[in-house]
Amino acid sequence: MDENSQSSASIPAKPQPKITPWAGPLWQGCAEGKLRLPYCNQCEACFYYPRLWCPQCFNQGLSWQDVSGKGKVYSFSVIHQSPLPSYQEDLPYVLAVIELTEGPRMMTNIINCEVDAVSVDMPVEVTFEARGDMKIPQFQPTI
């Protein structure tokens, strides 16, 4: 992936997520190459995406935990037509929901493989993709 490349000026940059104040450690983790999720000390479980309280019990005493970054494809679709100018070069690309070993599900692309190789239940692992001056979690087939 070469989103940071300035060579193709006509292609707009892919969306860069806005960092909310309570999600800082997630993005800091990405920058360090680690998938870091909010953790409820009461439920003793991670959740995604970062919120101000635990969506299971409303506890606001939260911490952060580095998770395995491993999981499975819960579902996916190969997109042949996208309205996003910044994704035109990637067509066809995979939009997927993955389920982490620790439980939470995340939306992602499945990258670094042929789109036809993707299937439901396929093992995947996290990788990180640059978006501007930050990195976002992405998933690829487990090597």
Partner: peptide, 27 residues
Amino acid sequence: VSHEIYEFPYGTFIPAIYAQVASRHMF
């Protein structure tokens, strides 16, 4: 229809979101 931070940056598109339901049903 998709989360501004945790979904939209992945190139979401309404048919592809519903397709997740279809693919899972197929599986």
